[in-house]
Write a protein that binds this DNA or RNA. Structure first.
Length: 232
DNA sequence: GCGACAG
DNA sequence: ATCTTGTCGC
């Protein structure tokens, strides 16, 4: 992470941010370049602050080891004041500065990173997952709870495991996945160094009875608990 | 011009 | 994302 342009992390404005996204997307790798069976997998997510309070956010990184699910090997928590307000399509610039610190607090680099948000299923092919992947040169997968762009192609079955492609401008940009019966689907997209098929395979692999895969589920839960404790 | 819009 | 208890359903 030494040859990363400053604008990729702290662009002065949205115009620079947009240019950075195009540059990052051009460097994103669509082919698999990761371990067949990742041993250390991390999940990251951010929690905001209760309204009425300063615009602070907390980034939580959770490190899990294959075989020992739901029992984090380690966690990293970071709090700060984001430089950007939330603007659809530019979420990465608001959260990534803190996510990078949260990941740096972990004792080891993960073999794979699951991100709460989109990867390639983004207007410029540069969702937070892709952004993080290129900056860290780490395999990443985007796991979003709602679409940013695109429409599901066809009817998604009600059974767990049902899938249908998310299409935008004639392109398949993500997989709409029913991770569990009776819940809204997940939008799984490739981030960096992971193919669309592999992305879905790993999400299914780390599912443990909940809508979200463990890495992201725990990061989401722990970030929320940290917020409660801090504001209590 | 109008509506949509990850977290 | 956040505001929030009970409640319907498998």
């Amino acid at each position: 992470m030494t040859d990363v342009p400053p604008d990729w992390i702290h662009p002065p404005d949205l115009a620079a941010a947009r240019a950075a996204q195009h540059a990052i997307a051009a460097r994103a790798e669509a082919a698999d370049r990761l371990a067949e069976v990742p041993r250390l997998v991390a999940g990251v997510d951010c929690a905001g602050a209760a309204r009425g309070r300063p615009d602070r956010i907390r980034a939580m990184a959770v490190l899990l080891e294959r075989g020992a699910p739901s029992a984090p090997v380690a966690t990293g928590l970071v709090e700060g004041v984001p430089a950007f307000r939330y603007v659809p399509g530019f979420l990465g610039f608001r959260e990534i500065p803190f996510i990078l610190d949260a990941l740096a607090a972990l004792p080891a680099r993960p073999d794979l990173l699951l991100v709460d948000g989109h990867g390639l299923s983004h207007p410029r092919g540069c969702g937070t997952a892709t952004h993080l992947g290129v900056v860290l040169d780490l395999p990443t997968i985007g796991v979003a709870k709602s679409p940013l762009v695109g429409k599901p192609e066809g009817e998604l079955g009600m059974e767990a495991g049902s899938q249908v492609p998310l299409v935008w401008k004639g392109r398949r940009i993500a997989t709409v996945l029913r991770s569990k019966r009776g819940v809204n689907p997940l939008f799984v997209s490739a981030g960096h160094r992971v193919s669309p098929e592999t992305a879905v395979r790993h999400v299914l692999d780390w599912l443990a009875g909940y809508r979200l895969p463990e890495p992201t589920r725990l990061a989401d839960k722990l970030a929320g608990e940290a917020r409660r404790l801090a504001e209590a």
